[in-house]
């Protein structure tokens, strides 16, 4: 029994004979207004280009990429928030787009923005969110203080408005919300971006603890190469919608004959990480 298992009624069975995530030629294209070409003209912006990869159950995989590389689009597709334009994605053998209701029971997510009702407290935000996963008030009365304690959130602050909490504290509550529902696939979309070094370390340490104690597969999307290297067994590079590689860090370094992931990025793309900062703002808006 997992340390974070909550007694939810959503007892969806998970097949043990299939990978946790299978993504095959997954493609997503957005159409955005192109003011230069005319008022009604739409420009096709490919966000993901035939991305293919597999994640085994219990594995932690990091996908690296700069803003606009398609990381958030990938997470949104796997969270059933977007529909694909080609290819397929399966989560524990279930079609992510045609079995969305079932997938939602298996997946939860932490994104770069903490995303809460700011006037409501941590307790209130977690409480109503848990109802969507079938948890009763009797269950959340004990589960919420427990999970908040585990993420290092001071229990006496759980009735304070979210708006009075620091970004680091809010992100801890976001982690608690994701784990409260005992997901078997946890999607972490830049969970430490914008956090101070101490909060960042605490969140990373908590992710390690989740891996040790919880039967969860983790897909971590980040642009922090050190974080990816520290937390994941395999690291992938998503560049302008294309997955250039997905391998253990040692193999990536060996393949490109380099010492660091930054150098591997340069070797794989022909560009430095800094150059990416100048990327088209519109693309960031679309895929960010």
């Amino acid at each position: 029994m997992s340390a974070f298992a909550a007694p939810t009624a959503l007892g969806t069975s998970v097949r043990g004979d299939v990978p946790a995530v299978e993504v095959d030629n997954l493609t997503k294209v957005f159409r955005r207004r192109d003011p230069k070409a005319g008022r009604f003209t739409r420009r096709r912006l490919p966000a993901l280009k035939k991305v293919t990869f597999t994640i085994e159950r219990g594995e932690c995989v990091a996908i690296l990429g700069q803003n606009g590389s398609g990381k958030s689009t990938l997470v949104r597709l796997l969270s059933t928030l977007l529909l694909e334009d080609g290819g397929e994605a399966r989560i524990f053998g279930h079609d992510a787009f045609r079995e969305a209701r079932l997938i939602r029971r298996l997946v939860n997510r932490v994104s770069v923005e903490a995303s809460f009702f700011k006037k409501m407290s941590a307790q209130e935000n977690l409480s109503y969110a848990a109802r969507f996963y079938g948890m009763t008030p009797a269950q959340t009365r004990t589960a919420i203080p427990e999970i908040l304690a585990k993420v290092g959130f001071p229990p006496e602050r759980r009735t304070e408005s979210m708006m009075n909490l620091s970004r680091g504290m809010q992100q801890k509550v976001a982690l608690a919300r994701a784990l409260l529902t005992s997901p078997v696939l946890l999607l972490l979309d830049e969970p430490t971006t914008g956090l101070d070094p101490r909060s960042k370390r605490e969140v990373q340490e908590f992710i390690r603890e989740v891996r040790r104690t919880h039967d969860a597969t983790i897909l971590l999307c980040t642009h922090d190469m050190a974080e990816a290297e520290a937390l994941a067994e395999r690291v992938g590079l998503l560049d302008r919608g294309e997955l250039l590689f997905l391998e253990p860090v040692a193999e990536v370094k060996r393949r490109y004959g380099v010492e660091t992931l930054e150098e591997a990025f340069f070797a794989a793309t022909g560009r430095s990480f800094e150059e990416e900062q100048d990327e088209d703002d519109e693309l960031r808006e679309v895929f960010g």
């Binding site: 949104r76 059933t80 939602r104 923005e113 995303s115 700011k118 969110a129 969507f132 996963y133």
Partner: peptide
């Protein structure tokens, strides 16, 4: 506006 829309729409409630 609050940013919770994605969490609500990915929740397993009809």
């Amino acid at each position: 506006w609050e940013g919770t829309i994605e969490y609500t729409f990915m929740a397993p409630v009809s």
